[in-house]
Write a protein that binds this DNA or RNA. Structure first.
Lengths: 229, 229
DNA sequence: ACCTGAACACCGTTCAAGT
DNA sequence: ACCTGAACACCGTTCAAGT
């Protein structure tokens, strides 16, 4: 214990930084107060002096990574392109840090007024408000975009996690498609029908197609108000 | 212990049923093997005979509730109306069982090829394929709808959970809107601008507006292919 | 085949005590 | 003000033993 050199004074930032490293290395089960104290060469009490509990620590780790992903915004020519860039930035952040997706969902479902969700809503919402559609559609449009980004990125992260563990991508997609094709035709006609096209698709391309679909909806639903009869 | 009447033989269904009841009563922290064995008047070993581990139990509980929500489909006149009905059914299931939303996100991000996600994709996707848009847009369209449903419902469930604990709805919305209005105008111009309209809105109405927005996008993006230049 | 229940390894958190 | 580290309550899971 005395042999371990203490780098510098403990701080909230250093703790969050270490937490992110542990999460990146081993997922959520990799982050415990035991592993954290070992890495920081302290006791649990020291961490509790800077952080209220584990939930707050996870929230802070999530917030830190998301903030980083949102600041690297490529300035696009159009609001649409900027929205695509922000969406892709979040998509890639979740791909790099797969533990983010359950965590984002937890933040969303536990305290949507926390710091992470507002940050993302603000970033997307600013571009939505620049699209030139009526203000009363801004919130709905932003919601649709943000929720789609979270969900699609989560699903993609799950795939790449499997792929990360030494599985061939083509083989994985083939296996998944085959599994879908072997579903009961009476019960799962839809999944069977799209199994073929799932076999060879580009994840990023597919993701952006969804963003574009929602952008198209915003453009058409905007001027005319609701499309519902 | 001997005083407790054992209702009938233990089974996977009885265990899942008890798990749902515990989750409904106290959320995810309400379900432990201690509370479960007490409720079922057995030991942990008995439960492990029917269920592999806690993760599988949570997945089974989620699957059971979702299956119930999907079978109560109102047969609508148009595919659009049926999609709205399915969406609203899921929305209300998540509202009734708030523990569903983190759980659905977890299922999605851990094993999208599990039983819950395919079930929902199938139900929505069947209606999407009946919309008359080209087949190569089906998957994207279904993804956008499903992810939006999950995300928006999660956010709504978080709100109603706060409201459930004896907080007045109007007061809550006012407090949230006020909090948004007090954000740094330089950093959060968008959230500030929509704070007013958040003050009085109907949750279900708002949710369906998002579904309609995506439906509009499907209709317009469908025939012409991608809208991206 | 199905169930019992003590035991195990591990976890988040607390707190009196130090500096 | 900040840190130490033993201790506590609780958790999921196992397994030899029963029926």
């Amino acid at each position: 214990m005395a042999s371990r050199t203490r780098a510098e004074a403990l701080s909230r930032e250093r703790i969050v930084e270490a937490a992110v490293a542990l999460l990146d290395a081993d997922g959520e089960r990799g982050l415990t107060f035991r592993t954290l104290t070992e890495r920081l060469a302290t006791g649990p009490g020291a961490i509790y002096w800077h952080v209220a509990n584990k939930g707050e620590l996870l929230a802070a780790a999530t917030d830190s990574v998301i903030a980083g992903a949102l600041t690297t915004e490529a300035v696009g020519s159009s609001p649409e392109d900027e929205i695509r860039a922000v969406a892709l930035g979040l998509f890639e952040a979740i791909e790099r840090h797969p533990w983010l997706s359950p965590q984002l969902a937890l933040q969303l479902s536990r305290s949507p007024w926390g710091s992470v969700t507002p940050r993302i809503f603000e970033s997307v919402g600013q571009r939505v408000s620049a699209l030139g559609v009526p203000q009363d559609t801004w919130f709905t449009a932003t919601s649709a975009l943000v929720h789609y980004i979270f969900g699609a990125a989560a699903q993609n992260a799950a795939n790449s996690r499997v792929l990360g563990s030494g599985v061939d991508r083509a083989e994985f997609l083939r296996a998944a498609a085959n599994a879908w094709e072997e579903l009961d035709p009476g019960e799962y006609p839809f999944l069977r029908s799209i199994a073929g096209e799932a076999r060879d698709h580009d994840d990023r391309e597919q993701f952006l197609a969804g963003v574009d679909l929602i952008l198209a909806g915003i453009a058409v639903a905007g001027p005319g108000g609701s499309t519902r009869p």
